[in-house]
């Protein structure tokens, strides 16, 4: 009896809820120029939801706003280490994307990740690697080594751009110096510091604007994300993305729902929506990175799906996803970084 009642009630709730769910608004806060307008349009049509999209330029900006409270956003797209921080601070809603209808599409490599073990909070958005690209018209040597950045041959000295990003640069230096990531050990940090100080005179600029830097001829080498490298190669075919033997930085951005989101149900619908292979392909097609959803490649243009930028060669080291460093290490990173650029 009570079972039947429950069923009836839940059926009624569902009947009421479904149209109500599919109506209304959704406020998304994502990295700049990262969201395919077609994806948003499709979602709006499919669920009759009005979406607003705003952009941020760094995890830290997003985090500051979310942490202050009352940001008004439902969905944010934090990178791996930021998901970890947001979870520790209790900023995200437990939405169980893994149990959603499209949850089965998540590439098994990206289910038990350090930032959200078992995918209870976040859905994959895009992932990629960060190494560097070289214009091989201007440099013919072996590029698959971090020595290109940290101990460059003479013809590359003063022709290098690195990302204006403390973590990426520090981690790369740690790999080159052969010490662990985020290590607090003084001797290792000294090595890292020496590596950076020795490399600095060879660096021309610190900038995120990597595609313009390398395609305009300002530099020959630039630290870069793989998707940006793909785009650079579309402009100058000789630009080659390196897979340094010392190790490769990996990252993943994830769709998360904020705790207290006003449009919680729509936000869940959106998480499920982006895990459908054809939708994940829309994301990748626009922004140029792989997405962590199995079966999405067949919806992608083959020259992109088969490009060397998203398919590492056999023998390349596996991408390493680095958790947030402990505060005492961040403090030292900060000092080294300031000293490097004073």
């Amino acid at each position: 009896m009570s079972g039947k009642l429950m069923a009836a009630v839940s059926a009624a709730v569902l009947l009421w809820a479904v149209p109500a769910l599919a109506d209304g608004e959704l406020h998304i806060y994502n990295w700049g120029d990262y969201t395919n307008p077609k994806l948003i349009e499709k979602f709006e049509k499919q669920y009759n939801v009005k979406v607003t999209l705003d952009d941020y330029d760094s995890n830290e900006t997003m985090l500051s706003k979310v942490r202050a409270g009352n940001s008004g956003y439902d969905i944010v797209v934090p990178s791996d280490y930021t998901v970890k921080i947001m979870l520790e601070e209790g900023l995200l809603e437990k939405t169980e994307p893994n149990a959603m209808p499209n949850g089965k599409n998540i590439d098994p490599r990206f289910v038990d990740i350090y930032w959200d073990k078992g995918r209870h909070y976040t859905a994959p958005w895009q992932f990629g690697t960060t190494t560097f690209s070289v214009n091989t018209d201007k440099f013919k040597g072996d590029i698959d080594t971090l020595a290109i950045l940290f101990d460059p041959p003479n013809e590359l000295k003063g022709q290098i751009n690195v990302l204006d990003d403390v973590n990426t640069v520090m981690h790369a230096a740690e790999r080159y110096a052969g010490v662990p990531r985020c290590g607090a050990d003084k001797a290792s940090l000294k090595k890292v510091n020496d590596t950076l100080m020795a490399a600095k005179p060879s660096w021309k600029t610190f900038s995120y604007d990597t595609i313009t830097k390398i395609t305009s001829g300002d530099v020959i080498v630039t630290e870069q994300w793989n998707g940006a490298a793909y785009r650079s190669r579309q402009k100058i075919p000789a630009i080659k993305y390196a897979y340094p033997k010392e190790g490769i930085e990996g990252w993943m951005d994830n769709v998360a729902v904020l705790k207290g989101a006003k449009n919680l149900e729509n936000a869940k619908l959106f998480q499920d929506f982006v895990m459908a292979p054809e939708n994940a392909a829309l994301i990748s097609e626009f922004a140029g990175y792989d997405n962590g959803i199995a079966g999405s490649h067949k919806f992608l243009p083959p020259e992109f799906a088969n490009s060397p930028e998203i398919n590492p060669p056999a023998g390349a080291p596996a991408a390493e996803f680095v958790p947030p460093c402990p505060p005492e290490v961040v403090e030292i990173y900060n000092k080294i970084w300031t000293n490097l650029r004073k």
Binding site: E60, N167, T338, R341, K342
Partner: peptide
Amino acid sequence: GGVHLMIGDLIAQQFGSGRN
């Protein structure tokens, strides 16, 4: 080219990756 920091960078850095 961002090789040398300015005051504005330095302060902004503490609110960003510096986490201080």
